[in-house]
Amino acid sequence: MNILPFLARNVAITCIAAACDAIAGYPQWLVRRIGHPVMWTGRLTDALDRRMNRDMDCDRSRFRNGFFAISIIATVPCGSVILLQAAASRRLPPPLMLLAGGIGASALSAQRSLWEHVRAVSIAARDGLPQARAAVSHIVGRDPTQLDEAGVMRAAIETLAENFSDGVVAPLLWMVIGGPAGAAFYKSVNTADSMIGHRTPRHDRFGYAAARLDDLVNLPASRLSALWIILAAMTMPGMDARGAWRIVRRDARRHRSPNAGWPEAAMAGALGVRLSGPRSYHGVVSHEPWVGDGSARVTPRDLERALALYRRACVVQGVVLITLALMTRRAWRKGRKPVMRG
């Protein structure tokens, strides 16, 4: 079976999706009218959590039901996209199918949304610490009232780095692999993990399957995101690409997450700061190891530098996608040429 047509189509859709997301993002008026794919998956996850994770259930039942739940959560969005594509392909010519697929799939990437939310922290910091705390509370789970200015800036940079992997690189990578359905599969797993993949009395057993599957599907993207950050740092004055590579090799695996440590270590090394470290969740202090060699006194200026590095890393990824699109299209067209026999 020749997979080149499938791969070429997926890469073209991914390029369109990435461009649409960077230019326009997901419009707020559309959120108000129909919601967002993450919201739809969230409702499904919440419904299954209420029905399949009851207080009366034993740990064994919760563990088993968690596998059933993540199977449904991952299958329903993916299958819905496949059915939608099949229906659209009977009505639209191939060029319009690519365009429609890319525009629709752009909702599964968070490139512009991530920029806007982290940029809001940088802007709020100009008005004082209370405003910065309020802005960062929208993007982190830790207690913002316990954060000084450096803590707020570290939290924002860590969120930027981690979500560059989870919200930008990973969905686009899975889009290349499986088209919009592949991205829908990834996004559903990632959403489920954010809701039930926690080590709490309620979700420790029920959310185990979701958390482990999320670790698995994020593994390649986390490594790629670190690479994009390092390559971006190589093109920017004042960034330490060698330091980023060194910190990734030394600290990425020390992070509490098997994946988040990679982009965070690359970001810390490139900026010359320390990230992660102890933090408070609902009054409970979590003693996480530090990532990086620089100062932990991170400033608003460092957050601005991180945002610039993030933008450049997105450009690096875009260049890679365009190059891959040209290569796959050329290989596909070359394979379609008739072989002349003597």
Rank of each mutant, 00 (worst) to 15 (best):
V339L: 14
L219V: 04
S225G: 11
R253L: 10
G318F: 10
A260V: 04
I23M: 13
G335T: 00
G141C: 09
T45C: 15
L213T: 09
G277A: 03
I103H: 10
R91E: 00
M234S: 11
I73E: 13
A325R: 06
A331S: 15
I82G: 07
R297V: 04
P37M: 14
S137V: 03
W290I: 06
R126I: 04
P130H: 01
A313H: 11
V339E: 14
G318K: 03
D240L: 02
T14C: 09
N190P: 04
W228S: 06
S222A: 15
R119T: 02
V217N: 01
W245D: 10
A107T: 04
V169F: 11
F185V: 02
L173A: 01
W40R: 00
C314K: 08
L275Y: 01
N259W: 14
T75L: 15
T45N: 14
Y310R: 00
L48Y: 03
R242K: 14
W174G: 06
G283S: 08
R43D: 07
R301C: 07
A87E: 09
L160N: 01
G179T: 04
V136P: 08
R91I: 08
T235C: 12
L99E: 02
G35I: 05
A244I: 07
F63T: 03
S222Y: 10
N218E: 11
L108C: 09
R51T: 02
V319M: 14
A313N: 12
E116C: 11
I230E: 14
L44N: 08
M195W: 05
A120C: 09
I70A: 03
P94Y: 11
V316A: 03
R274T: 13
Q85W: 13
A226C: 05
D57E: 07
P237M: 04
V189K: 12
A150S: 15
L224V: 06
I73N: 13
R330N: 10
S89L: 03
R312C: 11
R330E: 08
W262A: 06
A270T: 08
D240E: 04
R305S: 03
R205K: 15
G79T: 00
A241G: 07
I3K: 13
V81I: 14
H198N: 13
Q131R: 15
T235L: 12
A192F: 09
S122N: 10
D21F: 05
P93D: 02
I23A: 15
R279Q: 12
R43P: 03
P263E: 01
R279N: 15
V284M: 13
V319Q: 07
V152H: 06
R305P: 04
M39H: 11
S225L: 05
Y310M: 01
S89W: 08
S188C: 06
D240Q: 02
A88Q: 00
V320G: 06
W245H: 12
V31P: 02
L160D: 00
M239R: 15
I23G: 04
M340K: 14
